[in-house]
């Protein structure tokens, strides 16, 4: 049984600096998998290699057993892995609905000749339905015509996920989804992720907010200084001496 995602010996060197060093882990289908570690542990670099933003210096990324490492980001997306970005990266100048419509790009590929001649009505209607249902799913139904840039912080985060979800990916990569959220927003966001997972979408998230990740993840991989440190369920990680050591002061939050 192959895992949905597997990274083998993943390594990234920037000049003389090794940001990620021989990392191995697996993400099982249907799980919410957390990738944690103190600042500078190489989480985001790992993330960027999986999503195709960086080409790894060494090692492999396998999706359903097929190698995808080194593919450009849009090819990785077409294989079913869609990512979000830190700091609510959105099309701020476009409407909420248009943001979601861009997310449907892969499913309803625009055809320029059909568009000119008006033969793509069905595809456009389906794309619209898909975009609306994604917005509905993340509680953005009433905000279709707002500019994405005008939304509140929490709504922008939700929209980022709605854009990703609009393509119905197998795996969503979330880059620090809880940064800058208050406890109430965090709680709502966790609810959305659980629902997303229940719909059959596997989630891999990078986070350093231990609190949120402990209550959410089925499985957690912890890294430190670019290296694999520990893996296991929330309780194992919480009590793992190396993890506590790595987080130092962070141990107080964990306990």
């Amino acid at each position: 049984m192959t895992s949905l995602l597997e990274v083998q010996n993943l390594t990234m060197r920037f000049g003389g600096l090794t940001a990620v060093d021989g990392l191995n882990f697996k993400v099982e289908k249907g799980h919410i998998h957390g990738l944690i570690g103190p600042n500078g542990a190489g989480k985001t670099t790992t993330f960027n290699m999986i999503s195709g933003f960086y080409t790894p210096s060494d090692g492999k990324v396998l999706l359903n057993g097929e190698e995808i490492s080194g593919l450009p980001m849009h090819h990785v997306a077409n294989r079913g892995i869609v990512r979000t970005f830190q700091h609510s990266t959105l099309f701020g100048e476009l409407s909420v609905l248009d943001n979601a419509l861009v997310g449907t790009h892969m499913t309803f590929r625009p055809n320029i000749f059909a568009a000119i001649l008006g033969l793509d009505g069905a595809a456009r209607r389906n794309a619209l339905d898909r975009a609306r249902s994604s917005l509905e799913f993340f509680g953005l139904g009433g905000l279709e015509d707002e500019l994405a840039g005008d939304l509140s912080h929490g709504h922008q985060r939700a929209l980022g996920m709605a854009v990703a979800y609009a393509s119905r990916p197998d795996l969503i990569l979330l880059d620090e989804p809880f940064t800058g959220m208050n406890p109430e927003e965090t709680r709502q966001m966790m609810g959305l992720m659980r629902r997303l997972c229940a719909e059959g979408t596997t989630i891999l998230l990078v986070e350093h907010d231990m609190q949120a990740i402990m209550g959410l993840c089925d499985n957690i991989t912890c890294m430190s200084f670019g290296k694999f440190l520990a893996e296991g369920g929330p309780s194992e990680i919480r009590n793992h001496p190396d993890v506590i050591e790595a987080y130092l002061g962070g141990a107080r939050h964990v306990a």
């Binding site: 980001m73 077409n78 990266t89 959105l90 099309f91 861009v102 790009h105 854009v163 393509s167």
Partner: peptide, 10 residues
């Protein structure tokens, strides 16, 4: 407006 996000959307 946001080429990275567009690319991530395929």
């Amino acid at each position: 407006w946001q080429d990275k996000l567009a690319q991530a959307s395929g």
